[in-house]
Design a protein around this nucleic acid. Structure first.
Lengths: 169, 169
DNA sequence: AGGACAAGGTTGACGAGTCAACCAGTGGAT
DNA sequence: ATCCACTGGTTGACTCGTCAACCTTGTCCT
């Protein structure tokens, strides 16, 4: 629109674009991500009646001692906004997957507990989930690729923590 | 590659759980995905006022000859449901990022065109996007990792196409 | 030509996520 | 004891994605 002093804004106006190899990697990653999340969610939904979000909530609860967690602990594990968690738990409570009570220790707080039905469901869903994970990803890769993938994920997560410390919360 | 009948039956009751290495890879991948999509979307939103979805629409349009595409072509590129596309385009049209007209060739169809403002915005956003992609992922990885990542993404996408042919459409 | 069926899009209702505002309880400082 | 900031959670309004129903136009078959 308006003419600018070129040198000062050099990297704003002309960044280092991706070369062919980088472009392929980036597009591939984005497309894989979209496809994979859609796939996982769809399978869980149609085979178990759980969304991926439901699954994650129940998974964390079922791994916790007594199948119960404080709301904020759950939120930290999931890295969800508190309002999202609150609303989601309301819906899950209505479906009899979890219960909520006031904490005895801290009157502000809520304790979330997985129900028998929730426990039942997550046990089926976990089998489905691991089978899908194998089928779509894990079993498709060599041992080397698996190791590299882990390394990549570690690096990126670490980097994101630096770039975006708030990280959705 | 595919499991035998016997395995399939066994899978239902007691699947092959993930070993430690596999578990780390899978959890790492999931967490990276969530973090990365959140990051990309947040940056685009706060720096350019575009959601990632907006970005993808405009990117495809700006790469098309004349900055225009039939609705269904756009849908195929994005792999979006047609209703999602329709609703999203309505919102983008209201924000003066695209226009829609009836196709002359096929009276059923719509032709979507990027506006001047849309062109302006995508050019800024693309710079932001590539900078973020570098910063969070590309520049963090070695050449080998980048190559392996591409290979992994290719394999997974290919596998997903087999497992989930509908693939969100 | 006529009728069935498919293709391209739109709409409405609903489930889900985000943001900002809010409320109640907690825990210091003074 | 009182004031005040912080923490843990909930609510309401808005945006976004999905599903099913629907309408119009094109296509094919006879």
């Amino acid at each position: 629109m308006t003419s600018q002093p070129v040198d000062r804004l050099a990297d704003v106006t002309e960044p280092r674009w991706l070369n062919e190899q980088e472009e392929r990697a980036w597009r591939g990653l984005m497309t894989m991500e979209e496809g994979l999340t859609a796939f996982i969610d769809r399978r869980l939904r149609t085979h178990c009646g759980l969304s991926h979000a439901d699954y994650q909530v129940l998974a964390h609860l079922s791994e916790a001692p007594g199948g119960r967690l404080r709301s904020f602990e759950l939120g930290d594990l999931l890295r969800w906004e508190k309002s999202r968690l609150s609303q989601h738990l309301s819906r899950m409570q209505a479906r009899d997957l979890v219960t909520r009570e006031r904490s005895q220790v801290d009157q502000r707080g809520a304790v979330v507990t997985i129900t028998a039905q929730g426990t039942q469901l997550i046990s089926v869903a976990a089998r489905q989930h691991v089978a899908d994970a194998r089928d779509a990803v894990i079993d498709q890769l060599t041992a080397t690729e698996l190791k590299t993938l882990t390394a990549i994920a570690d690096k990126v997560r670490e980097r994101l923590a630096v770039l975006d410390p708030s990280g959705r919360r």
